[in-house]
Amino acid sequence: MMIQCQQVSKSYYKGSTVVTPLQALDLEVPKGEFLALMGPSGSGKTTLLNLLSGIDSPTSGSLIIAGANISTLKQRELTAWRAKHVGYIFQLYHLVPVLTAFENVELPLLLSGLSKAERRERVHTALKLVGLADRHDHTPAELSGGQEQRVAIARAIVADPPLLVADEPTGDLDRDSATRILELLRELGTEQSKTIVMVTHDARAAAAADRTLHLEKGQLLENLQTT
């Protein structure tokens, strides 16, 4: 099992009010599954995604990802864990504007201790996989939205993490680009056995996943098998 959430809750203070975006949530995701999370705004989708990717820590409960209980890790340990285990794909790509596509993809590898030659090889492979082998030297400003998202996907997979999390990866793309991105994510799941958790509002995007879960008010509503 890649992901095991047991009674995971998350609450925080907003002024003097306690907000609980996730409440006693149980979830299991097997290795290699492509899971879509849907739900209205404020349902806790992004909070869950942040917890699964080690960007945030749960207030209570146990969160075991790739065999490690990350709910007990300290901030510094969590940062190091993220570098090895998670690739994050953002809705607005979040590429570093002053770096080229090659340099953006190379970023996670700077933490890996690989040699320059090894890094070059892996970046080249990742960019080739997302169909942008000819865009090494382009800065984000010189790429289309779809191309930027593909660079972001290359950045997410270049360090070969077992888990990919995607926060509305097609939310800012036109239909054709969105289709290509979803195909790419599916390929990564099937061909490279990546476990993918994707938050989306788009039912068409969710249809590309193996399974779709609906969240509302911090709790899972239903469990639909889509494939």
């Binding site: 990717s53 960007i55 510094r76 993220r82 570098a83 979040h94 570093v96 970023l107 933490l111 950045r155």
Partner: peptide, 13 residues
């Protein structure tokens, strides 16, 4: 701020 957040998400301390 967001760029710094992204770099932290990637794994930079």
């Amino acid at each position: 701020v967001r760029e710094m957040g992204t770099l932290q998400a990637i794994g930079f301390g």
